[in-house]
């Protein structure tokens, strides 16, 4: 009963308990995003220390018992106003350069080798692989539901495991076409650096190249109803041969 002190929160978005930083990247765009983040953090640190220093100096030097006479008539100060307008503008420009560069790079269309079609529903994802179909015009499609806690094997990640994972080959340009069947959802996988909203009636395209084998977890990122927290995404990337083998089994 008295376990409210022990109920530490497991932040399900990062498989690390209490993880604060990004998950390990598995695609070049995620690596670029992490680098941009670190770049901007440099400017933020400068601003943080500068502003903190100014504030502490003002508080220490102008406290009322040290400087009791207040100047009520200070109205202008053109030089300092110029400085504190131009300096943030310059800092913003410095931040903007790598940011826009990455933005346009990510928007660049690559010729994808594989298309995966993702449709969000309340409260599961359904996937289709439209490039592959057997002779009967049957497509490869499946739904992906959360594994409830009672069905979890020991050691599995709670609230992140699904019954059918998205299997993709590594080192292949994959295009996700994301849509929705009912309300807005958002398809997010932080390790791959993708997050794309799913709107009914609209097809959003996002492309990914997965660098390494492994499983990558993500969650629905747009509130969609009561089970919005129970719509995880698991993308598993395997080598090309194993992928072809898996395809044949379907």
């Amino acid at each position: 009963m008295m376990n409210f002190f022990y109920n530490l929160t497991l932040y399900c978005d990062a498989p690390q308990p209490w993880g604060l930083y990004f998950q390990d990247s598995a695609s070049p765009q995620m690596e670029a995003l992490i680098e941009l983040h670190d770049n901007i953090m440099f400017y933020l640190a400068i601003i943080l220390f500068g502003v903190a220093w100014i504030m502490i100096s003002i508080i220490r030097n102008y406290v009322s018992n040290k400087a009791p006479i207040s100047n009520k008539y200070l109205n202008h100060g053109t030089l300092i106003e110029l400085i504190w307008t131009i300096t943030p503008a310059l800092i913003l420009i410095l931040i903007a350069f790598p940011s826009f560069k990455l933005l346009y790079l990510m928007d660049e269309v690559t010729d994808p080798s594989l298309t995966v079609f993702v449709e969000g529903h309340q409260w599961y994802w359904s996937y289709q692989y439209p490039d592959f179909s057997n002779g009967d015009d049957e497509e490869l499609e499946f739904d992906s539901y959360l594994v409830p806690e009672s069905d979890l094997e020991e050691g599995a990640l709670r609230m992140l495991e699904v019954d059918n994972r998205v299997i993709l080959p590594e080192l292949t340009h994959v295009r996700f076409i994301i849509s929705s069947g009912d309300v807005i959802h958002s398809y997010a996988c932080p390790a791959l650096g993708i997050k794309c909203d799913a709107y009914p009636g609209r097809l959003n395209q996002i492309s990914v190249l997965i660098n390494r084998e492994g499983s990558f977890f993500g969650q629905c990122s747009e509130i969609c109803g009561i089970l919005h927290s129970s719509m995880p995404i698991v993308i598993e990337s395997i080598s090309l041969e194993k992928f072809l083998f898996w395809l044949q089994e379907q």
Partner: peptide, 8 residues
Amino acid sequence: YRSLCPAS
């Protein structure tokens, strides 16, 4: 259109 459009 086979690869781009949802079957539905």
